[in-house]
Amino acid sequence: MLDKNGIAKRIAREVKDGYYVNLGIGIPTLVANYIPEGINVVLQSENGLLGMGPFPFEGEEDADLINAGKQTITTLPGSVFFDSALSFGMIRARKVNLTILGAMEVSENGDIANWKIPGKMVKGMGGAMDLVASADNIIVAMQHVNKAGESKLLPNCTLPLTGIKCVKKIVTELAVLNVLPQGGFRLLERAPGISVEQIKNATAGKLIIEGEIPEMEI
C-alpha cells in the first residue's frame, strides 16, 4: 500500500518533458517533489503564475508571492505573472497539458465530485470546475476508500459533481486505473504488496481486469 508520498511519486512518472502542469491542493502538491531529473516542466498556479518554485527559505517569504493554496512560494528563472482571467484563459484554451487533483468520488464514466458535501460547510469550488471542464488530461490522486471504508470509485457519484466525463486516470494507495471512454475503471497496476482481490473489494464501480496486472514501479 502506498502512502501519500508514494501516490505522488507514482503520479510524477506521468509527467512528461515539456509539460505545463497544474497541481491541486493536497497530494497533488507533493508531485512536484518527485519529478525526475531531466524532465523539464512548468508548474501553473491558477492565481496567476507559470514557473512556480519551491517554498522560500525562512525569512524570505513574500506576501505578494503565493500559490493557489495561499502558501508562500518562490519563482524560477523564466517565471511569469498574469491576471486571473488570463490564467483561466490558458486553462480553457487547453495550453495546460496536465491537471492533477484530489477527489472525494470518481464515477466509472469519469465524473468527479470534490467540492461539496451537502449538509456540511460548503467552502466553494475554487478553480476546480474550470480545470476539469477544460483539461485534456486529468489525473486524480486520492485514497481508494473513504474514512468510513466505502469505495470512492463508484458506478455514479453520490456527491454534487465538479465535472462530467473528464477523469482519465486515477492513482490511489492501492492501484493505478484509467477510465475507459465507454465507461469502467480498467486496472493497470497494483501497489506493492496489494492483490487484485483487495482492489476488487475496494472498488464499487465497474472494474475491468484484463490479463496479469503488474505491480507498479515507483
Binding site: 519551491p54 517554498f55 527559505f57 525562512e58 503565493i66 495561499k70 502558501q71 508562500t72 512560494i73
Partner: peptide, 8 residues
C-alpha cells in the same frame, strides 16, 4: 500572510 510555508 495566510499560509507561511518555508523550507530549511
Amino acid at each position: 500572510i495566510e499560509q507561511r510555508t518555508t523550507r530549511k
